[in-house]
Amino acid sequence: MMSLLEIRNLSTYYHSRRGVLRAVDMVSLSLDEREFVGIVGESGCGKSTLAFSIMRLIQPPGEIVEGEIIFSGKNLLELNDEEMRRVRGKEIGMVFQDPMTSLDPLEKIGDQIVETIQMHEDIGKKEALEKARELLESVGLPGNRVNYYPHQLSGGQRQRVMIALAIALNPTLLIADEPTTALDVIVQEKIMNILKKMTSEGRSIILITHDFSLAAEKSDRIVIMYAGWIVEMGDSKKLVNDPLHPYTKGLLESVPDLWLERRIKTMPGLPPDLVNPPPGCKFHPRCPKAMDVCRKEEPPEVQVNGRFVKCWLYGV
């Protein structure tokens, strides 16, 4: 099967006064149609930069320095600005963490959705407004919310409006960057169910989150990022039941879980400074299984029982 999205050797750097920060460092990843992928990592691991790179929303001092992003057969990095603008929204939608900063406070919800639709499609205002109502209803909001201003809605309702906006042009891929981080669990569950339902309607979802258990529960496949690298990637259940990379294992053991009876384990150290990352494997200073080779050479990327892992433990 042809994949919907294929990222090959993508590197995105930020140029800072201290030097070059390798936020995304030679990352390869593919996504199938109707697939729900969760990208998990801590702040600064490059997960949001990866999402912004796919959307080509990286602003200076950031820069995509190499790689390919093949979406529906075309390399997004080779499109001109006008072509890319048409891809955004229409083919790839995005939901951000903070709905209040992404909505115009002075414009009614309905008008904002209508504007988005009319920007890309040649339809009348009345028709577009009707579509806006339907969109709101599809994310579980009453259609009359088109007449509301953003401040009249709760955080969860606003985030649902953002999702409605993101799918207004019927994109095949939706990227959700920490969509529920600012929200309570009950609202989170509702929003996740809406996203989940979209995959059965033919969409693919990339969920970016720091919440490992949320990604484990909702996504088909999990991608674990650390310091700009993908360190492990595979089927959610298998990855959680049998983590291969020491970072994945450490992360799993450090997360409090409602239903697991266990103490949590502390992971030593801090994530590295990406301007001066440690040599060899970037995780080696925190790794309980670090060997000599880990301190010197970058780990190989290997497949173990259909699972991708970047670690010397499974090296050749």
Binding site: V185, I186, Q188, E189, D211, F212, S213, L214, A216, E217, K218, V240, L252, V255, D257, L258, W259, L260
Partner: peptide, 19 residues
């Protein structure tokens, strides 16, 4: 019960109390 139903977990229980 509704809160417990909504909390994400590595070993989610089959508890679905709505709200």
């Amino acid at each position: 019960a509704a809160l417990l139903s909504a909390v994400p977990s590595f070993e989610k229980r089959d508890l679905r109390v709505g709200i």
